[in-house]
Nucleic acid binder design. Structure first.
Length: 769
DNA sequence: AATTGTGTAGTTTTT
DNA sequence: CTACACAATT
């Protein structure tokens, strides 16, 4: 019976899947079928009569958790093994047991924006100049400390006994105050979820045993990315029954900068000496050419145990290094290459991915891909839950759920405007501090605060009363509550009936949040709770939203690419200073450069059939164009160099002329303006229909539902309906100029005005189409 | 009190 | 270049 789950595995895979009791370390190289092994192993355990309730699987991303759950489901229908991310698992635990660390069960999970707000407050309370001590940097230090399991007390101890820089002196004072602020707010930040849980387990032997007994079989994915806190949590729970299985690959450790410790692998073997170690080295994903190239790169890491990358796959095409003049040509060249892959290799849009080291590289790419009408999705952009309206409304919900939430209170007390300005707010905060009450309580009793203006007193009281009524209304449907909040606060009033792009967006965002809430209501069913919804929103990320088969090319950072695979991969900007990144090379820091090498390795090993790296001769960053230096990694890996510079740019130039009215970028001005425009009669392949890039929203990812698609700046034609952010809708009544100086004249509907724009400069968007 | 302008700083960021 | 925080306005 169990054999059915492990029959078709290779011997090492099978050995891993059939190992049930005792600690197990699976070292799984890229493309070695790790997820397959892990899910089979769970199925096999179930087949051996282990109760699903005793199994706990922990991943780092929601996506990985979802995928794993789905695959276990399909192997053993009807199972409910708890597969969760570290943070979600800890959140659940803290809701139940958090009292011991000073948390009430309705604690809020703060996003980075709120954290910054809190730090700002603390800094000013302690009379630190936030100009000299940027909240970001302080927060970073605190986060690092938390990842290393240093509580404020331990941090101070350590500081006392070491030399330390002056940052430590600052953090030493700020960290405890920040932590106090958090607890007063009944709130945690992301790192706290782990830190509190680890402390709870460390200080509470009974809890350790309870959980150890409940989760007798624990599985941790991407183990090389665990930090000290995560290690301690897992080790504490597995201490008793010792059925801990971890999977990882030291070569894919790319989160060292976030506190991840590869050493946790060595430590695992030390703490669990009876560990069985299994290596999965056969690669089922990539061609030989890709693997050889990636291997040639990674062997340059000195801090590394030798590991082979083997495959029975075909030799495949050589890895190509495409070299361009600048990023414009790079983007165009990639577009062209993608079309070729579609035409000649029979690939689809969704088979192609483009990776880059820094998000800022995606912008130019996006613009060009749009012009070239290549459908794409970006795993980043403006995150849905980062938008102001969303965060405002979520703050309302958070304050309803957790009246102690200071960040939420301050964010919304004057939104929409209620005439409760900074001065009044500061007085309220001071008074609440003296009285030891929450800001909301202080607002309710504003008449007791001496220095407040009459207007402010009334405003605060009205606000508190409104929140009071919201709390009463907050049972059942989250969507209904949210609608109620929007309604009563008149949050959208300022945008209603205003015809401009921004107002339109704001309203759409609000609608989308309501949708997300409604979908949450449906999924949660009788389990529905405001807290559940808030937790969901706090713990989802941008990368969760990328769809596997969206019919679009996928753009993302190298970090986000981990765990994915694509038939064709482009890694752009393989240049010194980008990969390896400038910051990693400071002080000759070998360790960080090795992490950069692993990052490129991860990117390369995502590719199944075709792998392209690109570099340019000049690159613009921070508004400055600089000649580039080749990445030292390029001399290590094996590739074929292909020059596609401006000189060889005949075909590139042709491509940019394909679309009528598509403006040239100024960079490509070598195209004479007076040259007649070539209008290709042959339209792009059928599959090249201008599919809008789906900037899938966070709302959609909550449910996996469809995407909203913004309008594309396609070519403009006479009579074309367009929208301008300031002037609104209009009609193109004239087209003039060529190349970079292409202009359109638009007659606007609302204002009787006609304006002429240089197409390449104006924020005009086509409507309808 | 809210809008407008000016300065600064800018990897990666599973959660 | 561009986003964002803070200062200087009316």
């Amino acid at each position: 019976m169990s054999a059915t789950f492990t029959d078709d595995l290779t011997p090492p895979q099978r050995a891993a899947a059939e190992h049930i009791h005792g600690p197990l370390l699976i070292l799984a190289g890229p493309g070695s079928g790790k997820t397959r092994v892990v899910t089979r192993r769970i199925a096999n355990m179930l087949a051996h009569g282990i109760s699903q309730r005793q199994i706990l699987a922990i991943t780092f991303t929601n996506k990985a958790a979802g995928e794993m759950a789905e695959r276990v489901q399909s192997l053993v229908p009807g199972t409910k093994v708890w597969i969760s991310t570290f943070h979600r698992f800890c959140a659940r635990l803290l809701r139940q047991y958090g009292e011991a660390v000073g948390l009430q069960s309705n604690f809020s999970i703060l996003d980075t924006g709120d954290q910054k707000q809190g730090i700002r407050r603390v800094l000013s309370d302690l009379d630190f100049d936030p100009l000299h001590y940027s909240p970001d940097k302080v927060l970073w230090r605190i986060s690092t400390a938390k990842n290393d399991l240093l509580t404020p007390e331990r941090y101070q101890e350590r500081f006392d006994s070491s030399v330390g820089d002056h940052w430590q002196a600052v953090v030493r004072r700020v960290y405890p105050a920040y932590q106090k602020w958090l607890l007063e707010s009944n709130a945690v930040d992301f790192d706290d979820l782990l830190l509190h849980t680890a402390n709870l387990l460390a200080e509470n032997p009974e809890l350790r045993e309870t959980l150890g007994d409940r989760y007798r079989y624990i599985l941790v994915d991407e183990y090389q990315d665990t930090n000290i806190a995560q290690y301690q949590i897992v080790a504490a729970m597995a201490q008793r029954h010792r059925n801990l299985c971890v999977t990882g690959d030291p070569d894919q450790s790319i989160y060292g900068w976030r506190g991840a410790r590869i050493e946790n692998i060595l430590r695992f073997e030390r703490d669990f000496p009876e560990t069985k170690t299994i290596r999965l080295e056969q690669n089922f994903r990539s061609t030989q050419a890709i693997l050889e190239s990636a291997d040639a790169l990674i062997v340059n890491n000195t801090q590394r145990k030798h590991k082979s990358l083997l495959t029975d796959n075909t030799a495949g095409e050589p890895v190509q290094l495409l070299r361009f003049e600048d990023s414009q040509h790079e983007a165009e060249g990639i577009s062209k290459q993608i079309r070729q892959l579609l035409a000649e290799d029979g690939l689809n849009w969704s088979d192609v991915a483009i990776f880059y080291r820094v998000n800022s590289l995606s912008r130019q790419l996006e613009t060009t891909l749009m012009r070239q009408r290549i459908p794409f999705q970006v795993a980043a952009g403006v995150a849905f839950y980062d938008r102001v309206e969303i965060r405002d409304l979520l703050a309302y919900l958070r304050l309803i759920d957790n009246p102690a939430d200071q960040a939420a209170f301050l964010r919304i007390v004057n939104k929409p405007l209620r005439g409760l300005g900074k001065t009044s707010q500061d007085r309220l905060v001071a008074w609440a501090g003296q009285q030891g009450v929450t800001l909301l309580e202080a607002a309710a009793r504003a008449d007791k605060i001496s220095k407040l203006s009459k207007k402010a007193v009334l405003g605060f009281k009205a606000f508190a009363g409104m929140l009071e009524r919201f709390s009463l209304a907050s049972s059942g449907s989250v969507a209904d509550l949210l609608t109620h909040v929007v309604d009563k606060t008149r949050y959208t009033a300022a945008w209603q009936g205003i015809e401009n792009e921004q107002a339109y967006e704001h309203l759409a965002n609000v609608d989308e949040l309501v949708n997300a809430a409604r979908q949450y209501d449906e999924i949660a069913g009788s389990e529905v709770s405001l807290q559940g919804f808030l937790e969901q929103t706090a713990l989802v990320s941008d990368t969760d939203k990328i769809q596997d088969d969206a019919g679009r090319v996928t753009l993302m950072t190298l970090h986000a690419a981990k765990g994915l695979e694509f038939p064709a991969v482009f890694v752009i900007g393989v240049e010194d200073g980008l990969i390896p990144h400038e910051r990693s090379k400071r002080d000759g820091n070998r360790k960080e450069v090795e992490e950069e090498r692993r990052l490129l390795f991860v990117g390369m090993t995502r590719a199944k059939q075709r792998l392209f790296l690109t570099e340019t001769r000049v690159r613009s960053l921070h508004g400055k164009t600089m000649p580039t230096i080749a990445s030292p990694f390029l001399t290590e890996l094996i590739c074929e160099k292909v020059d596609c510079g401006t000189f060889g740019g005949d075909t590139l130039a042709a491509w940019s002329r394909v679309m009528q009215g598509v403006p040239f970028d100024e960079d490509s001005q070598e195209e004479p303006d007076d040259e007649p425009q070539i209008i290709e009669s042959s339209s792009p392949p059928a599959s090249a229909q201008p599919v809008a890039p789906a900037l899938t929203t966070g709302a959609a990812l909550l449910t996996g539902a469809g995407a909203t698609a913004p309008r594309l700046p396609l070519g403009f034609a006479m009579g074309q309906q367009v929208r301008h952010p300031r002037y609104g809708r209009g009609t193109v009544i004239e087209i003039g100029g060529f190349g970079p100086r292409r202009t359109v004249t638009v007659a606007f509907a609302d204002s009787d005005r006609k304006e002429t724009f240089v197409v390449s400069k104006a924020p005009l968007q086509p409507v309808g189409n």
